[in-house]
């Protein structure tokens, strides 16, 4: 390839202005459309898209936080209910204890009273019985003497003796005493 050909080649090559990026005649066009595109994108994003997306995110955050708070609240309520239940249970137990105690005391009182009256009655009856027994015993002694006197007199009479009533009585009395 000689120099003339090369020169022609060079001339041919440098006619289309090399890099399109350095073709300054297209700059105003690109800059204009870039500004338009940027402004449109910016307006769409800042007016429409971003408020919407941030609202969605906030809403989700809110609903998640709300759900967690609600769950927390329910948990708290459950705890409260449990505490109340425990308290009620303890109270009921106390009450029962008290009632049982009272009942026991009352029953004891009643029982004591009943026992006392019963004891009294028994004592009275026993005294009475004793008195009666004493009476009976006295009566029996007396009747034993008279029966013995009679029997002795009869026996003496049956034996053929003559029994003086006084002597018999004295003998019987001596015998019964002895």
């Amino acid at each position: 390839m000689d120099n003339e050909e090369l020169a022609a080649e060079v001339a041919k090559e440098s006619v289309p202005a090399g890099m399109p990026q350095l073709d300054f005649s297209s700059f105003p066009n690109q800059i204009f459309w870039l500004v338009v595109a940027l402004v449109v994108t910016y307006l769409v994003l800042s007016r429409l898209a971003l408020p919407r997306i941030s609202a969605i995110l906030a809403e989700r955050q809110g609903s998640i936080a709300g759900d967690i708070a609600a769950a927390e609240e329910y948990k708290l309520k459950a705890k409260e209910a449990e505490a109340a239940y425990e308290k009620a249970l303890a109270e009921a137990r106390n009450q029962a204890q008290k009632i049982v105690g009272e009942a026991r005391a009352e029953i004891k009182k009643d029982l004591d009273a009943a026992i006392a009256t019963a004891d009294e009655k028994i004592a009275a009856r026993a005294a009475e019985s004793e008195a009666r027994i004493g009476e009976i015993r006295a009566g029996a002694l007396a009747s034993v003497r008279s029966v013995a006197q009679d029997a002795a007199a009869e026996i003496v009479a049956a034996l053929g003796g003559k029994a003086d009533a006084d002597t018999v009585a004295a003998a019987v009395a001596a015998r019964v005493k002895g």
């Binding site: 005649s25 297209s26 105003p28 066009n29 690109q30 800059i31 204009f32 459309w33 870039l34 338009v36 595109a37 449109v40 994108t41 769409v44 994003l45 429409l48 898209a49 971003l50 919407r52 997306i53 969605i56």
Partner: peptide, 29 residues
């Protein structure tokens, strides 16, 4: 010739980009 207001391939592809942004960020949500 390419004037500053001429609709060129720059316009077309920037517009497609803007449409894609709108499709994603506005219609998507």
């Amino acid at each position: 010739p390419v004037h500053w207001y001429t609709i060129t391939n720059v316009t077309l592809w920037m517009a497609l980009g803007v449409v894609a942004v709108i499709l994603l960020m506005v219609t998507g949500a």
